[in-house]
Simulated assay, not measured.
Amino acid sequence: MPAGVAKRMRRQKVLYDGEHHYDVVLGEQALYTNVGGPEVMLGQIERLIGETGLPSLTLGILPATARVRDLFPVPGFNIYGAGDSTRVHIELASSSVDITEPGELALHEKAFGLLSTAPVHGADAASLLRKAHAYWSTVPVRG
């Protein structure tokens, strides 16, 4: 597990290089899925709060009650390539998948477009982050 964390941290450095831009849609329920305990969750949410002002990041949070039209639940995915996608990356429990076939790329771009119609941004997203932070601040830490 530590090697995976280190790899993800290296990938996140591009948030600060000034050469990339990321449009992220995060489901509100992810703010409450207890991965690592309250301390880890607080740290993750604090990092999101701190990075929402980065010019390289557009963070949208999909409220748990938001209606997403014409889309069934899909696993998380990353689209690489600006406007003209070169690949889609999906991390699985035991491996990962890279998709490069044009029809599949177009399908994932369409899915992201549909997901992008429902999230909140700016002050509304910050409000959801503060609400989740307040929740995790009250959860007792268990050893």
Rank of each mutant, 00 (worst) to 15 (best):
D98C: 03
F72Y: 14
I90A: 02
A126D: 09
L42R: 04
I99T: 00
K7F: 11
V139R: 15
E101G: 00
L15V: 01
L59W: 08
S96W: 11
D124W: 02
G27L: 12
S95F: 14
G113C: 03
V14R: 13
R10E: 07
T138C: 03
S127G: 09
T52V: 13
V40W: 12
P55N: 00
P2M: 07
G103T: 01
M9Q: 10
S95A: 10
V25P: 02
T138H: 05
Y22W: 12
L62I: 07
A123F: 02
E91C: 09
R87M: 15
Y32K: 03
G113K: 11
L128H: 01
K131P: 10
T65P: 04
G103D: 13
L48E: 00
H121T: 14
A93P: 05
W136Q: 00
Q29P: 04
V141W: 12
L115H: 02
Y80Q: 15
L31N: 12
A3Q: 15
G36Y: 12
I61H: 02
P2C: 05
A132G: 14
R69A: 06
T65I: 13
A111N: 13
G83S: 05
L107V: 11
T100C: 11
K13M: 15
A106C: 01
G36I: 07
P55R: 01
G76K: 05
L31Q: 15
L42S: 02
P2W: 09
L54I: 14
S85F: 06
E46S: 15
V97T: 11
E101C: 01
H108Y: 04
L71S: 00
G113V: 04
N78V: 14
D124F: 03
V40M: 15
R10I: 12
V35R: 00
G4N: 07
I49P: 08
A66D: 02
A126T: 07
D124P: 13
G83P: 11
S137P: 03
T117K: 12
D17R: 06
G76M: 11
T117R: 10
N78F: 09
P38L: 10
L31F: 08
E109P: 02
D98R: 15
T58F: 07
A93K: 07
M9T: 05
Y16C: 03
G18F: 13
R67I: 15
T138V: 06
R142W: 14
G113E: 04
A30R: 11
N34R: 09
R87P: 11
T86G: 11
G43E: 03
R47Y: 13
L15D: 00
A125Y: 11
V24N: 07
G122L: 01
A134M: 15
H89F: 15
G83T: 07
L92K: 08
